[in-house]
Design a protein around this nucleic acid. Structure first.
Length: 937
DNA sequence: ACGCTCACG
DNA sequence: GACGTACGTGAGCGTA
């Protein structure tokens, strides 16, 4: 019955991945009504297949057909070139579980569905096209991907499914300026930013076609490159020969794969109505079911009208009931939950642990939720209560299933790529599981969803979200654990209480997810969430777990030295004050200086007081007073040492993990409104550097023997972004010329030629440049530069005169914020500005914050993008990314590979905005290396 | 718990 | 016209 493929046959090859991505991006994030499973891409995919089938008649109709998919992200091209497709954004999290469903859909239509691990769909398509052509048949490739155009000719054509336009030899020539047989030559020269094929710098398709047509083919062109008349082109081709040859290999499709199936098996088959309608009904595609049923002349299956997921999530629909949660204590019960998870395709997960430090604490239990109101808690390491002992016993509580057995059962679920694991702050839970050898993926995070939508409106902790969006106040943890000295850890909480608390967290998380998921799209932040928030979670988890080595002895020695110096200073201070007092108390110090000693401010003003009525004794005040008395200078010195000792040399030692000998910070992704990260426990983003004494703290941050620390930081990234967003040509030019940007500003403002620049004039211009980024004010600049306010205002006026675009940017930004209630970064991150229309002093703050947010936020987005791409880019190097300090990344790498790392990481960082945003100003990255952070910076 | 001070970008 | 201000963070300490 199978027809032998040959003359008269017509093979259609459908580029499945292209279908899926087009479907995903074209449609709103449709979810299955009964349970909220994301199925938007599946729906679009099915529609496209259905439309294709309906159109498959007439002279171009297929006798054989297959849908071809990509499989696996690592292909033989990555072995040739590790940067291949390195710019590719990660697959959106809600698309991932739809991938297997699109395969199911293809089979349901009874169409051959093929994919091979380690090969791109394009290679399979190429091989099949060649086989079919050699057998004397026709081929139509259903795709508009230009990478496939090299296959056209000899009976092979392409069909753009959107425009319904066939592409033949002439079509290819129109696109590439050469025939199909020379397409790879042109691509090798022009490169491809989407796939990150390098090509020849500065040569695009037009120039490439011109050259190929003149010299015949790429090889002749490269051999005779010296004959090219234009000097720039000639040099580019000679200098980049190997890169161009590599590019050709990358774009050349493999037409000779060994395939585990033959053409005959691809014969067109009618779908089985029951199978097809069954699948469509399972997906709850009501409209398509009807249409397909009509077409096939079959009865449409009934799809029960389930309540909307959003309605389910509404508090009045399913009330919270702590008593309804199940305590899972044996394998059979757990298996029931696992089965339910597989039925759903998603699960909310929460872990309970013995503390907050993910690197130290132990897992105590796991809670799961698959449907609003239906959650369970699996206690695993609770201790039994002991009546005679205040601290409980060390015996394990009864009614808990075996720890290892439970994890063995959960591991496949948590690692299953078709099951979404939903959490609130999933970085925490991922790290707990990672220490138990479980890699949780794919994930969704309600905290980050809220952050993407509501940054600037409120915090994103579970309590706030539950109150605000579910109208429900979660059970507080305090009464369970107690406070202060008598506080217990969660493993001491009685299992019955723990079930109520823990399962509720999973329940809340699931309800939040059901509410947030569709809102992401409505609020136009899906891309932000998918490209800047969600993929950062595993990257940060890795960095935090790796930690940075800190040398305790170095800190300890410094601490002793500081203590000695402080004691000396303290003695002098008490002598000067005439009595002993607590030097660390601003209140006492203020009274001593202003009341007892009668010091007066040099500017004649009254000493200022804070809102508690105490004198202000900040560094600026003491700095002024230092001109009339020796005591304030001593205080300043003492304070500096006190800060260094308590916050750094002492506290940092407490953070060295006894197992790893390293310090493991934690980054909050949703802390800063602008998109910046924040580092806590300890904060490694404010390690001293500005003072010589403080900088030495960085000597304690060291590399392992045989390794070095490497630091790469963006040079002037915020000013570069300002130049771009405000469109300031003079600034852009200065950056492209590589001149000193502050000196240039000074020269422009004060009419001083660059070669006559003095450090002081430059310093003033620098302050103005920073001021501009912060939403400049005369008062602020005056205070910063310690000059009269009128003079500062004069500087600002002059600055705006010279750079009128900056004032326009500021005005436009504030106007936008007033109109919309938010401002945006270049990558679409929204920072809400709820106070922008407020009256009174709030208004000033809100205005300046609104001006600053797009600049600071865009810089934050850029480095996030670099960080997300970094692990794959450096995976072949003996290197680890350790820390981020806003515009700086710190790595630890084998000594011999430091230079290679710098090359790779710099490339990723400088091009991090590609391809989403094309900056007018090049980003530039400085690098350093050394045995410790002080040397590397 | 809150304000002050100061470390960073 | 006065108000009170540079933008974004986190930690340690003193004070209430």
């Amino acid at each position: 019955m199978a027809q032998q493929f040959g003359k008269g046959c017509h093979l259609h090859l459908i580029d499945g991945s292209a279908f899926i991505f087009r479907a995903y991006h074209a449609l709103p994030p449709l979810t299955r009504k009964s349970d909220g499973l994301p199925v938007g891409a599946v729906s679009g995919f099915v529609n496209m297949l259905q439309r294709y089938i309906e159109g498959n008649t007439g002279p171009d109709a297929a006798t054989h057909v297959a849908v071809i998919f990509d499989k696996g992200s690592h292909t033989f091209r990555n072995d040739m070139y590790d940067q291949y497709k390195a710019n590719r954004e990660a697959m959106p999290e809600d698309l991932r579980p739809q991938m297997p469903l699109t395969r199911d859909a293809t089979r349901a239509f009874n169409i051959a569905c093929e994919e091979i691990e380690g090969f791109e769909a394009d290679d399979i398509i190429a091989t099949l096209a060649h086989q079919a052509r050699d057998a004397g048949g026709r081929v139509t490739i259903v795709s508009s991907d230009k990478d496939l155009m090299q296959l056209v000719g000899g009976g092979v054509e392409m069909l753009d499914p959107m425009k319904n336009k066939r592409i033949d030899n002439d079509g290819v020539r129109e696109k590439f300026g050469v025939g199909p047989e020379r397409v790879v030559d042109v691509q090798a020269l022009a490169g491809d930013s989407v796939d990150n094929v390098p090509g020849a710098p500065g040569i695009g398709i037009k120039t490439a076609a011109l050259l190929i047509n003149e010299y015949g083919d790429l090889e002749s062109l490269l051999d005779r490159a010296t004959e090219i008349k234009q000097p720039k082109r000639r040099l580019t081709l000679i200098d980049n020969r190997s890169q161009i040859e590599l590019s050709k290999k990358l774009v050349q499709l493999d037409c000779d794969m060994e395939l585990p199936f033959d053409l005959d098996s691809l014969e067109v088959r009618d779908p089985d109505p029951e199978t097809l309608l069954g699948f469509l009904a399972l997906m709850e595609f009501r409209t398509i079911v009807k249409r397909v049923a009509d077409k096939l002349g079959a009865e449409a299956p009934v799809i029960e009208t389930a309540p909307q997921a959003a309605e389910v999530a509404a508090p009045e629909a399913v009330p919270f009931d702590a008593d309804s949660y199940e305590c899972v204590s044996d394998e059979a019960a757990l298996q029931v939950w696992i089965d339910r998870i597989y039925e759903r395709g998603y699960v909310a997960v929460d872990t309970e642990t013995t503390g907050l430090n993910e690197m130290i604490v132990d897992l105590v239990g796991v809670s799961l939720c698959v449907e609003a109101g239906q959650a369970c808690y699996i206690p695993l390491a609770h201790k039994a209560a002991a009546s005679d002992d205040l601290f409980g016993s060390d015996d394990v509580a009864e009614g808990q299933m075996d720890f290892d057995r439970c994890l063995a059962m959960l591991k496949p679920v948590l690692e299953d790529t078709s099951i979404i694991k939903i959490g609130q702050n999933m970085k925490y839970d991922s790290k707990i599981f990672k220490r138990l050898d479980i890699t949780v993926a794919p994930i969704d995070d309600t905290m980050l969803m809220s952050y993407a939508m509501n940054a600037g409106v409120h915090n994103h902790g579970m309590d706030v979200l539950s109150d605000r969006y579910l109208g429900h106040t979660p059970i507080p943890i305090k009464p369970l654990l107690g406070t202060g000295k008598s506080a217990i850890t969660f493993d001491r909480v009685p299992v019955a209480d723990a079930v109520k608390y823990a399962a509720e967290d999973a329940d809340i998380t699931l309800r939040l997810w059901q509410q947030f998921k569709p809102q992401l799209h409505a609020k136009r932040v899906t891309t932000v969430y998918e490209t800047l928030e969600r993929p950062l979670v595993p990257v940060l988890a890795q960095m935090e777990m790796h930690g940075v080595k800190v040398d305790r002895d170095t800190l300890s020695r410094m601490s002793n030295a500081f203590a000695q110096k402080m004691a000396g200073l303290e003695h002098e201070i008490h002598e000067m004050a005439g009595r002993k007092f607590n030097v660390g108390s601003p209140k006492q110090l203020g009274e001593i200086m202003f009341d007892e000693m009668g010091l007066e401010m040099p500017d004649g003003k009254k000493p200022s007081k804070g809102k508690t009525g105490a004198y202000s004794t900040g560094a600026d005040v003491l700095e002024d007073l230092a001109t009339i008395h020796d005591l304030p200078r001593r205080i300043l010195d003492w304070r500096q040492l006190s800060k260094l000792k308590s916050t750094y040399t002492d506290a940092l030692q407490e953070h060295i993990n006894t197992d790893t000998g390293r310090v493991h910070t934690s980054y909050s992704i949703a802390g800063a409104n602008t998109g910046r990260l924040a580092s806590t426990d300890p904060n490694l983003q404010n390690i001293p550097v500005r003072s010589e004494e403080g900088r030495r703290i960085r000597e304690a941050f060291v590399a392992e023997p045989g390794k070095v620390l490497v630091s790469l930081d963006y040079s002037q990234i915020e000013l570069r972004i300002l130049a771009h967003v405000a469109g300031i040509d003079a600034l852009k030019q200065a950056f492209s010329d590589g001149v000193d940007i502050h000196a240039m500003t000074a020269s422009e403002m004060f009419d001083v030629p660059l070669d006559e620049m003095t450090p002081d004039i430059r310093r003033q211009a620098k302050a103005i440049n920073f001021g501009v980024i912060y939403g400049i004010s005369g008062f602020g600049l005056a205070r910063n530069l310690r000059i009269p306010r009128a003079e500062a205002q004069g500087f600002i006026d002059r600055y705006f005169e010279r750079f009128p675009g900056i004032r326009k940017y500021m005005d436009d930004t504030v106007a936008f914020a007033k109109d919309h209630g938010y401002v945006q970064t270049l990558f679409g991150r929204k920072i809400n500005t709820p106070e922008i229309n407020a009256k009174g002093p709030h208004a000033g703050f809100a205005k300046r914050a609104a001006i600053n947010a797009p600049i600071q936020g865009t810089a934050a987005d850029v480095i996030r993008r670099a960080m997300i791409r970094m692990p794959a880019a450096i995976s072949d190097l003996p290197a680890k990314m350790l820390l981020q300090v806003h515009d700086e990344l710190i790595f630890e790498v084998d000594e011999g590979s430091a230079d290679a790392l710098i090359d790779t990481a710099r490339d990723i960082m400088e091009n991090a905005s590609d391809p989403a945003v094309k900056l007018d100003v090049k980003l530039s990255v400085d690098a350093g290396q050394g045995a410790n952070w002080a040397e590397a910076h």
